[in-house]
Design a protein around this nucleic acid. Structure first.
Lengths: 227, 227
DNA sequence: CTGTATCCGTGTTGATACTG
DNA sequence: CAGTATCAACACGGATACAG
């Protein structure tokens, strides 16, 4: 039993720079930190959910990042009410306000010549990409509630006014439900794979308003590559 | 003389993730990379300028970052015409398009309870902050060309339509010239220090349209802290 | 003067194993 | 399930030496 846990008062590596961007990097510029925030962007998750959704992160690094982000006021750890006595990590409202950072990064990276869309894609990343890439002009007339189902995780999207809102949660009231895996849905929307083909291959299930589905997949145009 | 430059085929640490934000971090998520890009945002610089403007970076790390950013197509190295046979690093047009990333980071960090505005501030950071924080409504009616002079580095700002354009370069045609150090100008604009006081203390020189100066310093409101 | 290469002490990261 | 412990590999930052 080690009691001499000196903890070293962490002289964490910081940029000594008043620039806002530099300060932001002090707070969430460490490896994995932004991706942890991304995974929490549509609602709280448990430690093991985060580990599962961030393949490659190791337990000790995840622990450290959660500590750091909590200390910075970006997330809080909550204990769920007695029945499910689990712990979850949830962004603070300031934490949720970091979304434009992901959108700026994503929009810029979409033009990267080296971007490989065939790598693994998490559900949160996909939903975030919808909010980033939606074309307000094209989506102007479109409206409705869309449920996305990935395994047993569901997201409820509301399309209106040229924007998408999104949140993890129930999709009972959805006009349309799309079921599949994030990469397959991405192939339909960004990769030009016809939904009908994917449905015939059993990779996607479409329930409800199929016209809405046909339209939905056209609302997210990709910019030209920069190369 | 070492010829066996094996170069190690750089197994750089990457996220294996199709998410655009993750890819962006693969390209410029390493320590210092974003700050190097920031310093180049208003025009090319030489190696030693970068070193001087990024206190804390070491020469070998700067070399590595420049190599990485060049390989990624974010910047190019150019050799200046014979008279001044110096090398400069310049963002590609895609590199320049990363500016919204800094704006998102800066806007978010401006609300951080832990942000310390008294740390050193580079000229590029300050100019970038103008483009980030300008209030289009307040700036709607303001117009003019403003020169900022920091030592022997000058920036030319054009104010119009509620926006600011900025570029390093000549300021002969400016309606107003402000001379000082970046932290002092920041104190005037973000710290509520009256320009007149700073001028009386000899920390700022104001040449030209003083009404424009008075108005200019009010165009960049800070958001409330998140705490 | 403008970079580049190498050594070196230290801290960070990541894989595995392990504990409550 | 939610982390900790340990350890090896790597990245960082400083110094110094070198090259055009």
């Amino acid at each position: 039993m080690k009691l001499n846990k000196v903890t070293k008062a962490r002289p964490r590596r910081r940029y000594e720079d008043a620039c806002g961007a530099a300060h932001a990097l002090d707070l969430l510029g460490e490896r994995w930190a932004l991706l942890v925030v991304r995974e929490l962007m549509f609602g709280p998750k448990r430690f093991s959910d985060l580990r599962a959704d961030l393949p490659g992160i190791s337990a000790n690094v995840l622990t450290q990042r959660l500590e750091g982000l909590e200390a910075a006021g970006i997330l809080v750890r909550r204990r769920l009410p007695p029945p499910a006595s689990a712990q979850v990590y949830e962004l603070t409202s300031w934490g949720y306000e970091s979304e434009p950072i992901f959108q700026a990064l994503g929009r810029w990276a979409a033009r990267s010549p080296k971007h490989d869309p065939r790598l693994p894609l998490s559900a949160s990343s996909l939903i975030l990409s919808f909010r980033t890439m939606i074309d307000p002009a094209k989506a102007k007339g479109a409206g409705g509630t869309i449920g996305l189902k990935f395994g047993n995780e569901t997201f409820r999207l509301r399309l209106s006014g040229g924007k998408v809102q999104a949140r993890r949660g129930a999709i009972n009231d959805a006009d349309l439900i799309l079921e599949g895996s994030p990469p397959v849905i991405a192939a339909a929307i960004y990769g030009g794979q016809p939904l009908a083909t994917l449905e015939a291959q059993g990779l996607v299930r479409i329930m409800g308003d199929r016209d809405l589905a046909s339209r939905f997949v056209t609302l997210f145009p990709l910019p030209p590559k920069a190369a």
